[in-house]
């Protein structure tokens, strides 16, 4: 094994991104409608159903207000994770699209980086659609909401990078059942999405904060949309937000490089 080298990435990365964007535009209605309908269903079910039972304030607001930012964060996770697992795997394994591209001046590293940036873009698009629905329900109460698409992009990059690492080691497409059910579904439920993490025992709070990427995105999403931050583990708001950002930046960087390394190992024979 050769020594670790930083990948050389040129603007050709965007040509790979552009290929996926072109396909997305062609099939936009298939991509658009589910993203739009899903949050409406959640908000209806929780607002008109479950929410009626919850009469007190949840973390300083209504329950519906509480889950709005959670749904935006979930859209970030799903958008990027499914794009860079199932969809990237289909392009890599069944369509041989990556093989076709690396016969041109575009390198393997650039193909993977382009895929990751595309996954982040999908996350930003999906999250923005959900945000529009959340706003439509009157659940936005901060001007910082304008930064949500940017948060969704960088949070998306984190999930794209994690997903691509699974793709790099997936022997077949059914393999993705493991990360989906053992990683994504628990996060969907246990990252401060549907109830405040402060309700959990402290050790579980530590796990959620230390090991679940979604926790950090939910927290930032709630801060940007509602203008308030859930206090955890005795951290001040400023420290909490700084740790959220730092966590996302560091973990994204590590997995971005790891994803490229693992995919290179898989693709170059």
């Amino acid at each position: 094994m050769s020594r670790f080298k930083l990948p050389v990435l040129t603007s050709r990365v965007w040509k790979v991104w552009r290929r996926n964007f072109d396909v997305f535009l062609k099939t936009w209605h298939v991509n658009f409608l589910p993203s739009l309908l899903e949050p409406i269903l959640y908000l209806a079910a929780f607002g008109l159903g479950l929410g009626v039972l919850i009469t007190g304030s949840v973390d300083g607001g209504s329950y519906l207000q509480f889950i709005g930012p959670g749904l935006v964060a979930i859209a970030v996770m799903y958008g990027a994770f499914f794009e860079c697992t199932y969809a990237s795997f289909v392009r890599m394994y069944f369509q041989k699209t990556f093989d076709a591209i690396v016969a041109t001046p575009v390198s393997v590293e650039e193909v993977i980086a382009g895929e990751l940036l595309w996954g982040a873009t999908r996350a930003a698009i999906n999250a923005s659609i959900v945000l529009v629905v959340v706003a439509g329900f009157g659940l936005v109460s901060s001007m910082w909401v304008l930064l949500v698409p940017a948060l969704a992009f960088f949070g998306g990059l984190l999930f794209a990078a994690l997903a691509m690492c699974f793709t790099a080691i997936a022997p077949d497409i059914d393999f993705f059942n493991f990360p989906t059910f053992l990683f994504i579904t628990p996060m969907f439920l246990l990252s401060g999405t549907f109830f405040p993490l402060g309700l959990l025992p402290t050790p579980l709070q530590v796990v959620a904060f230390g090991a679940l990427p979604l926790t950090h995105i939910v927290n930032l999403s709630r801060t940007l949309i509602l203008g308030r931050t859930e206090q955890l583990l005795g951290f001040s708001t400023e420290l909490m937000l700084a740790l959220n950002v730092l966590w996302i930046v560091v973990v994204t960087l590590v997995f971005f490089l790891l994803a490229i390394m693992l995919m290179k190992k898989r693709l170059i024979k």
Partner: peptide, 18 residues
């Protein structure tokens, strides 16, 4: 390894971009 997501001409146009 033609790109099944695109038409014949679009396959060539997208490939030229690389």
């Amino acid at each position: 390894n033609l790109d099944p997501d695109f038409t014949v001409i679009k396959n060539l146009q997208v490939y030229a971009r690389y």
